[in-house]
């Protein structure tokens, strides 16, 4: 993108944020009544819905059931109208399959699957509007949906992306910054124990800068954790008050 400055001299990004600032996050739990757990998250202009079914009996082939823990089954799907250019297939292409696998790995690390042998947990993520950070918003939405379904987890899973422009690490990239082609790191973190569930890096980055970028991503994840935690606590408080007793 010729002529577009990703980081101005005063330290402002394309959308007016500072280098380490996150986009505005708004979230809601319990969006759909028919699913076991559901959540909706907006990170800037990225909008993602996540729905969790389970744990329930294995559908389809019983032979795939694991005898000592639950099977986590995910699907990542993007609506055809979610991107600027219309997407032809919502899921089933290479990118979506890769994201699906990443989601599965991330949540297998966080959910206490050994409590539910021979059952299956389904996590379905639907991206309604894609403006950068799609995978990270999906992880955050799926965390809220899993908490809403009452499935025990080791800790929250918070994800954020980070980039590196002009010797400054940027946190929470939007679509314009991602499309610019600079180095990008996507990180999924369990905040309380500082364990990294997923780490992915694209493009070229000098190893001297890697520490800085990962630090920026970890800090962004912890900021996201603060926001998500507040949403969960408000929701729990409201429901407990309504239930009374």
């Amino acid at each position: 993108m010729a002529g577009l400055e990703l980081l101005s001299d005063e330290g402002y990004r394309v959308d007016g944020r500072r280098a380490g600032e996150l986009r505005k996050v708004r979230a809601r739990m319990g969006v759909f009544a028919q699913a076991d757990g559901s959540a909706y998250i907006e990170q800037g202009n990225t909008k993602v819905l996540a729905v969790v079914y389970g744990p329930h009996e294995m559908r389809g082939s019983r032979s795939k059931a694991l005898h000592d823990r639950a099977l986590v089954n995910c699907q990542y799907s993007m609506a055809t109208f979610s991107t600027g250019e219309r997407k032809r297939r919502p899921h089933g292409d290479r990118k979506s399959s890769e994201m699906t696998l990443h989601l599965k790995q991330t949540f297998e690390a966080a959910i206490l699957t050994q409590l539910y042998p021979r059952s299956q947990i389904d996590i379905y993520v639907q991206v309604l509007q894609a403006d950068g950070g799609n995978y990270c918003a999906s992880v955050n939405a799926a965390t809220l949906a899993t908490i809403d379904a009452g499935i025990p987890m080791r800790d929250y899973v918070c994800a954020s992306s980070a980039g590196f422009i002009e010797d400054t690490p940027l946190a929470d990239l939007n679509y314009v910054e991602e499309a610019a082609g600079g180095p990008q790191v996507a990180l999924a973190l369990l905040p309380k124990s500082d364990q990294i569930a997923l780490l992915e890096m694209n493009s070229r980055l000098h190893e001297d800068h890697l520490d800085q970028v990962i630090e920026a991503a970890i800090k962004a994840c912890k900021d996201i954790y603060t926001v998500l935690d507040q949403v969960v606590r408000e929701h729990v408080h409201e429901v407990t008050t309504l239930l009374g007793e």
């Binding site: 908490i147 309380k192 124990s193 729990v236 407990t240 008050t241």
Partner: peptide, 14 residues
């Protein structure tokens, strides 16, 4: 609007 104050200990995962 409800008068009940919740003095329960509310927790989140982690």
């Amino acid at each position: 609007g409800l008068a009940r104050g919740s003095d329960k200990h509310l927790v989140a995962p982690g």
